[in-house]
């Protein structure tokens, strides 16, 4: 008896491409629509505005700072959640998701209220101003993007074989050394993903910043605020110009980060 002739694989790949292509098509169409609505003249206006140039700088610096801070808390927290069992772990796991679940305006409002309460107010008077100031921008971005970074790091550590750490311990490492010398380098790709995700998230963040830091031109205006300010006077062309600029900046930074972060790891 001969085996039945295998069916062609073409329909399978066709189905996958069709379904996947729907989303790719949507994103591409959105970008095309944005580009079609703006003109190089509008983009020129965007670049010429000192307010928007200031917003570009603030966005770049604050997002990078927020993303680095996010990774610094996400690595330990993701590790603890992934590798250890402690009382209240399930609760903490849920708690970390709260910033993702909360409506952005509520995040901002909560930050605002927190810094009006006596300890927050004391901090603002004696250390430095947070609300309506640049540290607040970074904090608002950090509050949300760290949640994404923690998720990423948790999954990363879940996927790393804990036995490499065990082996390192038999070879003379304390737990801390095993983590530092073996696990962390293996988590490199996850850390990079967490960083870029946090960065992109921080760049797009708007609601909490607007509520917590206001939209003061030249001071707390980030690019997403610029979009809002332009949109709120009906200047759709400029709003889209800034949006395209954000996309450009994001793509540039993410590509650079990947190229540097994965260099020499054989992953790219």
């Amino acid at each position: 008896m001969t085996a039945p002739r295998p069916k062609s694989d073409v329909p399978f790949y066709l189905c996958l491409s069709l379904l996947g292509g729907l989303y790719v098509g949507l994103v591409a169409a959105l970008l095309v629509a944005d580009v079609a609505y703006t003109s190089t003249v509008d983009l020129g206006h965007v670049f010429a505005s000192p307010q928007i140039r200031a917003a570009i700088w603030l966005s770049l610096i604050s997002c990078s700072a927020a993303a680095i801070l996010s990774v610094w808390v996400a690595v330990p927290l993701g590790y603890l959640l992934s590798r250890t069992r402690f009382p209240g772990r399930g609760f903490i796991d849920l708690l970390v998701d709260v910033p993702i679940l909360l409506p952005p305006l509520v995040v901002g409002l909560s930050l605002l209220i927190l810094f009006q309460m006596p300890p927050g107010a004391w901090f603002q008077r004696n250390v430095f101003a947070v609300a309506y100031a640049v540290p607040g921008v970074v904090l608002a971005q950090f509050a949300v993007s760290a949640a994404f970074a923690v998720r990423t790091m948790r999954v990363t550590f879940d996927q790393i074989d804990p036995r490499t750490e065990d082996i390192a311990r038999t070879l003379g490492c304390s737990r801390a050394q095993a983590f530092w010398l073996v696990t962390l380098p293996e988590a490199r790709r996850g850390i990079l993903t967490a960083f870029t995700l946090a960065w992109a998230r921080a760049l797009g963040e708007f609601g909490p910043i607007l509520v917590f830091c206001g939209a003061t031109r030249m001071r707390t205006e980030v690019l997403s605020t610029s979009v809002f300010l332009e949109l709120s006077i009906g200047n759709l062309e400029a709003a889209l110009g800034v949006s395209l600029l954000m996309i450009g900046v994001a793509v540039f930074v993410l590509v650079i980060t990947r190229a540097f972060g994965l260099r020499g790891t054989g992953l790219i």
Binding site: D161, T164, T170, E186
Partner: peptide, 16 residues
Amino acid sequence: PAIRNVGYVPQDAVLF
């Protein structure tokens, strides 16, 4: 484990 002075070769090598 660090101070037991034991060399351990796991089944699937588990290299770094």
